[in-house]
Write a protein that binds this DNA or RNA. Structure first.
Lengths: 345, 345
DNA sequence: TTGTACGCGTTATCAC
DNA sequence: GTGATAACGCGTACAA
């Protein structure tokens, strides 16, 4: 069985030069209608498919971009990847994915491999990485788009994570809560979680409230993490009346844990999430959450990257709007706390 | 600023031939320790990174495999992708992803593009696709591994989806349910859902029970789909006492919808899922579900594909075990139905 | 053990 | 508008 037909075979069959066949594929408008038709006919007849590796070698373009995510096993990143993939494939680009499980070493290695392999652009999550990785990126001279957090150098598509934390906290403060806890991810190399935490802290501080370390539980970014975090915070001496989840998963886990302990959400414990994933509106009680336009981040990251690749657009920071969606999981604090509050004033 | 150093630059710097540098990269054991060290030194000094496109063109290997999924925005497929990616990157392979939103046309197109681009192997979901796509795959002569459903031709890593449906149904039948409904995905080009449905139907039939069309609700594969499906089934004249979700998402949505209607799960309505995702054990009530080893499917698919690529292993069908995990969302039917049932006997 | 020389399949730069 | 032909950067028989 013979191997795939080459460009030269089509050229022979059509009685034209290889260059003409190449043009028929990449710049059809340069050819006379007659020759174009001729070439296309024999290309179809022979079942010719251009060889990507050869195209890449000759043109310097791989028509491939890569996304390096903390993990693929996440509703958030999966949704972002999905919208990236759709935007990219619409213009003939393919998407290479890698994950690093929140390890900067693994991220650097993934980036190195990807660059070696040959990519036209790169999408990363967050802005925080060792200088060595940044050097790698700079030397590679490949367009980079950062997501979720900007770094002032590369193009980025972001949201204001500190504002997200602030919106969640201010909502609870306005309801009258004074003891607010937070379940949040490990902060090491996770600037998204750190910014959200700082937003919460700032809002509390402005209201004259404190966010002591023992009212923060750092957890792996899973539902179980949310349950365990909630569990830990509820066992404090001065139990919080409200919890903020650094991601929806934490908030959902917290609701589950509170319910498992016989507490009623929201009357015994208010819970607020950040992300507004599809689950948020579907669980009961439905989850109050700060909406992060995840799919839009992915799509716009892809489009921004394409703009840099194809039209040499300069780096730009795009900040997407977020907003609090109030649902049923948050309300005023339990009576005792409300009394305590009024007696204090 | 000069471009990346090439192999020839390293050769010059080290005072050896290009071939020696090439060997230093791909077959170090063929070189004298001294020359190897010499080459590696100048390679590091110059920051040499082999060009993937050129390697691919010269060797015919791209060190890249592709996975084409129905969608990336799914806990299930995201988890499978994650474990694939880990298994692949461990041996230096990269993962290209595409999705088709349950459209066979889009799948064929994605496969075509991927093959043109050049891949060493391909992972697909399900066995059901137009003959044209299969022809495409055969001609490309690229190792293919199917997941979730076997087709008798390609290698596959699967589970028995009909058994999954059967396990869910038999559990409910054993509890005494006689009116069992099912929320399931659209069947067109989704052999996983079809097999699960047939498993349910077969188990019911063996128990002398019927699964009429109006007790099946076909929905898009989201939580809202689950809610809407549950809603539709609960509004039937002869309301079911138990629901099976073709995927956990449907079951979770059904629980939410039932609760929103003031029904108690499981005492008013039993719900069973298929997948056993992380949410299943965390919601309340926790969800009885048929465990599908999703991550293992992904990992084994990657390993099977690597075996075919690197060791020319013949196609094999690997069937992974599944089992029912009984939790709190399923119990005996409400009293009225139990009475009705005993009066019938 | 190492070097030589050519091929991989395409694109791009010139001429015509 | 179209045809030669030289890159593109590396792998690999084959020779030494």
């Amino acid at each position: 069985m013979r191997s795939r037909p080459r460009l030269i075979d089509v050229a022979r069959d059509a009685g034209v030069s290889p260059a003409t066949v190449s043009r028929a594929v990449s710049q059809p408008e340069l050819l006379a209608a007659a020759t174009l038709a001729l070439v296309q006919a024999s290309a179809r007849k022979l079942g010719y498919v251009p060889d990507g590796a050869a195209q890449a070698l000759a043109s310097g373009r791989t028509m491939t971009v890569a996304a390096v995510m903390p993990t693929l096993d996440s509703i958030i990143f999966a949704k972002a990847l999905q919208s990236m993939q759709v935007a990219l494939s619409a213009v003939g680009y393919q998407l290479l994915v890698a994950s690093h499980e929140y390890s900067v070493g693994a991220e650097a290695e993934a980036v190195r491999l990807l660059l070696a392999r040959g990519i036209d652009g790169l999408i990363l999550v967050g802005a925080e990485r060792p200088e060595a990785t940044n050097t790698l990126l700079r030397q590679a001279n490949v367009p980079v788009v950062l997501t979720w957090c900007p770094d002032g150098v590369n193009a980025s598509v972001t949201v204001d994570n500190a504002l997200a934390g602030r919106l969640a906290a201010e909502h609870l403060i306005r309801l009258g809560h004074r003891r607010i806890g937070m379940v949040c991810g490990h902060l090491l190399f996770n600037d998204r979680q750190r910014a959200r935490l700082e937003g919460v802290r700032a809002a509390l501080a402005e209201a004259g409230l404190d966010l002591p370390d023992w009212r923060i539980s750092h957890q792996p970014m899973t539902i179980s993490g949310g349950r365990n975090g909630c569990s830990a915070l509820l066992e404090c001496a001065d139990r919080p009346t409200a919890l903020i989840g650094g991601i929806d998963l934490f908030a959902l886990g917290s609701i589950a844990e509170a319910q498992a302990r016989g507490l009623c959400v929201p009357s015994d414990l208010s819970v607020v999430g950040i992300d507004d994933t599809e689950m948020a509106s579907q669980v009961s009680p439905s989850l109050t959450s700060v909406h992060i336009p995840t799919a839009q981040i992915g799509e716009m990251a892809a489009l921004t990257l394409l703009g840099r690749i194809r039209h040499a657009e300069p780096p730009a920071d795009r900040l997407l709007p977020i907003n609090l969606i109030v649902r049923r999981s948050s309300t005023v604090p339990p009576a005792a706390d409300a009394l305590q509050r009024s007696s204090e004033t």
